[in-house]
Amino acid sequence: MATINPDNHGLRLILRYTVLTLIAVIFVFPLVFMVMSSLKPDQQLLADTSSLRAFLPVGDISLNNYVAAFDRAPVGLFVMNSVIVTGVTVVLSLLVCSLAAFSFVFLNWRGRGVILSVILATLIVPFETIAIPLLLIASKLPWIGAEGVTIGWLNSYRVQIVPFIADGLTIFLFVQYFKDLPGELIEAARVEGASWPQIYRRIVMPLAGPVIATAAILKFLVMYNQYLWPLMVVQQESYRPVMVGLQYFFQLNRAWGEIMAYLSLITVPVLAFYLFLQRAFIASIASTGVKG
């Protein structure tokens, strides 16, 4: 039997890739199970769960569960609502939180340390504790729209977006990243006469690709998985997001195949976002020309 030593590089490589492949398979299994189950009728789906057949496209395979899922709920509407809410929130959050962090790190103003501490302290406050006060506020806020001035933000996109634009975690991530940027770059720009907005736009943000990607991913997941808040503030189907929509499938007799089909469908935007950000992340590193 061969032993592992520095000279046995090939064997080590095989071992490493075997372990990595096993880990990858373990992580991919739930997704494979979900997609395969979405193609099977309920009885077969349940029967297959006790064997490896659960991960294989075998037996009575069809797209019937997808057809049934679209019949049961307006899947496209729910996905669109979630994509709108999540997309707008992520973009605005990156802008607002990066500006806040820029101010905390690079601008010199009295009380910034205290205010940053207060913001960071909000990280330990669970959303559930502020949900009801937030609901009461949102239900009484004015809005100017096509119908003139109206009171109450319930049943809208804005009520799902605005409360989540600024958050302590995203600000914290930007602050930590900005602190590690080379101070010489900022000083050189100031000496050259660059204004703070110019430094933010032309120097700091182009170097912030990795933290933008990280913050965007975290924010995306939080927003796309929102359940409690939209449940409280959205009573109209036309504004419901995917996670509330998931409940359409939990009837007395659960249609597991339809549930898997629905989950497969709503996972598509998440995977697409990851793939998109993966490229953006690599591009941001390549384009900055700064090595850590």
Partner: peptide, 21 residues
């Protein structure tokens, strides 16, 4: 009519009652 999924219904009503809606 506005229909709600059964599992989410009671929570939606309680929240709406708090919001006066």
């Amino acid at each position: 009519i506005e229909s709600f999924p059964q599992i989410a219904y009671n929570d939606s009503v309680v929240a709406a009652a708090l919001a006066g809606n």
